[in-house]
Amino acid sequence: MTSSSPSTRQQRRQRSWSLYTEQRKPSEYEIVTHRLNYHFRRAPAPFELDPDMPLNRWYLRYREGSPFQVDDWEGFRDPARLTYRAYIQRQRERELYLDNLIDEFERRDHFALLKPDWVCFLEHLYLPSRFAGHVLQMVSLYVSQMAPSSYITVAFHFQGADEMRRVQRSAYVAKALSLAHYQELADSQKTRAIWETTPAWQPARELLEKLLIAYDWGEAFTALALVTKPVYDAFFNEQLGTLARLNGDDLLALMADDFALDQKRHQDTARALVLYALERKPELRTTLNGWVAKWAPAAHRAVEGLATFFSWAPHPLEKKAVVQAVGQRLQDFLKECQLSL
């Protein structure tokens, strides 16, 4: 064995990673995100262990074996192009904003002045949504760990954190309400019981529990990002925000508006990923539409169930109109993705 002589050694001054083969100079986002999922399509198996060990089999079945494949995922870019530090800066600003909002409303005794019927409505719809939001957090992080490209992984890591963000604010509201109205609002057992047993919640809980076991990476992405979240976010950010304004709960409405910023970013990611895939492999439209058709009915039933609560509000919204509006948002979003129900 000989040490290589200077003439065979790399002399050219290197501008970026040797595995970054695009013509353009990479952005910071690309420098730290490009081609990190080295295990995708690795032979004989993704991980450097026995090829048949459980996680190798799992990834080969649900990731490499998914119908949702293109030749190369590394050309995908999340529209927001978020690095960790950009994400943190952005969300730190948003969190400061929400803190200031809450502070301002608390000075006006906001929680104490909410009407009892409205509080009862919140108890049954808004408070238990932390269970639902937690599932969205879990599934987001499933999609991220199963994604073929680091560009997708990182976007869904952030998405999971965003879901946790929304959940934690609702936990704050639960406690604040309980101090102003009644103890049960901060009783985990009571809130869990609503989530587990109230009939209007069951279609949503069923949808979300089944979402947990959609293990094919393409189906998990579709069911989460193309069906469940567009519907859930339209309901909990938009429709609930509208209802809150009608009922004098401007704090909740403004919070929902802020979560709608995260929602937009999530939809931008999902849309971009679908369009990227369809551009490379138009026949994937059939695959994706198939999954959409499979999951949409359950999502529809979930909204129908939850919209029932809207009639509890002192100034209600008609259930049929809410369901219709949410359904329309889903249709519009799918159309933007060149998909359809």
Partner: peptide
């Protein structure tokens, strides 16, 4: 600053455990 500090509501940020019904 919001009135409540972390210990006031922290348990509600982590109580999302339940018995699954529709899947095992």
């Amino acid at each position: 600053m919001p009135k409540l500090s972390r210990p006031d509501y922290y348990d509600l940020t982590r109580d999302m455990n339940w018995r699954l019904t529709y899947v095992s």
